[in-house]
């Protein structure tokens, strides 16, 4: 292998065609409310974890849809299950239960 003093850039496009929606479907089946998110960020703004960790329920909700399971796995670790996000969501989404099911799904599919 030669390097020529540079690397070939990685593609940073979200490849929606290749996205693995398995986890998304699993969660949506358990808690269909996941489809109601409007990405307003109220959940994230109230989250004690988000202030210190790269943790945002809004982003998790997006990662799930885009099949970005790796990012999601990293972020979800910081959730403390306090439920404050559920309290403030204007769409009445049971965010806490979604996090719970994502974790279950990750385990089940051994992502």
């Amino acid at each position: 292998m030669k390097t020529f003093g540079y690397t070939i850039q990685n593609d940073r496009q979200i490849d929606f065609d290749a996205a693995d929606k398995k986890l998304y479907r699993y969660v949506a089946e358990k808690e269909p409310d996941i489809n109601l998110c409007i990405f307003c960020g109220t959940c994230t703004a109230t989250c004690s974890a988000a202030e210190f960790k790269n943790m945002s329920f809004r982003k998790i909700s997006l990662f799930l849809r885009r099949g970005l399971t790796e990012n999601l796995k990293r972020e979800i670790e910081s959730c403390m299950f306090c439920g404050k996000c559920t309290l403030v969501c204007p769409r009445g989404i049971n965010t806490r239960n979604i996090i719970f099911n994502i974790r279950k799904g990750i385990e089940e599919y051994e992502f």
Binding site: C40, G41, T42, A45, T46, S56, V88
Partner: peptide, 22 residues
Amino acid sequence: RGRLSEASEDQNGGIILKVEDT
């Protein structure tokens, strides 16, 4: 672009806002 999640008051009567800059 972010919806206010909560507000609190500081010592001078200022209002501290928490939103996500989405």
